[in-house]
Amino acid sequence: MRILLVEDDPDLGPAIAKALRDDNFAVDLATNGVDAGHLGETELYDAAVLDLGLPGKDGLSVLQGWRAAKRALPVLILTAREAWSDKVAGFKAGADDYLLKPFRFEELVMRLRALIRRSAGHAQPRLECGPLALDSQLGQFELDGLPIKLTAFEWRVLSQLMLRKGAIIERLELLERVYEGDADVDSNSLEVIIGRLRKKIGAGLIETVRGRGYRLVCEG
């Protein structure tokens, strides 16, 4: 899963990015409103974490711009502004959640997982596909009830497939949702990850749709 993090604090921004990466998210960090607006309108993200007090362009204007451009990514506002009027303004601009600073990294991660899961149409925190299951609250995959050890890239790919199980995810979209924007991606990297996943969960669960991409097959 790929997150757009918009935070201008030179200490807090990198700290949040590290915490999210430690929980297997890919993170692009924007430190001003102009860059944030552009990235949110042109790149594929599973969710955004947005500060309000930003240089160049304030967070509410950034969010309004995304919504005006029909960008539907879930947005969590992360700010020190605790007045009720600020919260109302945030939700009216199109925010999906609102978290006050100071905060616990664990809570931010759980809120993001919930937002992403619900935006994909899943009400329940546990997703299942045959013998495979994802506890979205813990970010843990299981096979036949036993935890699976995955690398960060394997987790991101399998999460995308699980959130849209049964649907074809095109190869380019999968790459864009797995790698950070400045990553130097090898052309065969996705195939390598898919191959490793098949060894861990069984070859029959991930189907290659020639010329298009991959899908998670849950029948049987």
Rank of each mutant, 00 (worst) to 15 (best):
157 V>G: 08
166 G>N: 04
121 G>M: 07
148 I>Q: 07
120 A>H: 10
125 P>W: 07
128 E>K: 14
86 D>F: 03
106 E>D: 12
126 R>Y: 10
121 G>Q: 10
121 G>V: 07
95 A>E: 00
127 L>Y: 12
186 D>P: 11
74 P>G: 06
177 R>W: 02
142 E>Y: 15
119 S>C: 03
83 A>V: 05
90 G>K: 06
171 R>E: 14
167 A>N: 13
128 E>V: 15
171 R>Q: 12
135 D>L: 05
174 L>C: 01
143 L>P: 02
143 L>C: 04
178 V>W: 08
131 P>H: 02
128 E>C: 13
142 E>T: 15
100 L>R: 06
168 I>K: 00
184 D>N: 12
157 V>P: 08
89 A>N: 09
100 L>H: 07
154 E>M: 01
109 V>R: 13
127 L>F: 12
168 I>E: 10
123 A>E: 13
117 R>K: 01
128 E>T: 15
75 V>Y: 02
114 A>Y: 01
182 D>C: 00
141 F>Y: 08
124 Q>A: 12
126 R>W: 11
162 M>I: 07
75 V>L: 03
83 A>D: 14
170 E>I: 00
144 D>P: 05
120 A>Q: 06
145 G>V: 05
140 Q>H: 09
164 R>H: 15
179 Y>R: 11
123 A>R: 08
78 L>Y: 10
158 L>G: 07
167 A>E: 15
108 L>D: 05
81 R>I: 07
179 Y>I: 09
100 L>S: 10
75 V>I: 03
90 G>I: 00
160 Q>H: 13
106 E>C: 04
98 Y>N: 03
139 G>W: 12
149 K>R: 09
92 K>G: 10
132 L>C: 07
114 A>S: 14
95 A>S: 01
149 K>Q: 11
146 L>K: 15
124 Q>P: 00
180 E>G: 15
161 L>I: 08
169 I>T: 14
155 W>R: 08
134 L>T: 06
88 V>I: 12
81 R>D: 11
112 L>C: 07
161 L>P: 15
143 L>K: 07
108 L>Q: 04
131 P>N: 04
111 R>H: 09
87 K>W: 06
101 K>W: 05
74 P>A: 06
174 L>W: 02
170 E>S: 03
179 Y>P: 09
110 M>C: 13
81 R>E: 14
85 S>D: 14
151 T>W: 01
136 S>K: 00
76 L>K: 01
107 E>S: 11
109 V>E: 00
164 R>T: 14
133 A>C: 10
98 Y>R: 05
154 E>P: 02
142 E>D: 13
125 P>G: 02
177 R>S: 08
177 R>G: 12
118 R>T: 09
79 T>G: 10
83 A>C: 04
126 R>T: 15
78 L>T: 05
187 S>C: 03
180 E>W: 11
99 L>C: 05
126 R>S: 14
173 E>S: 11
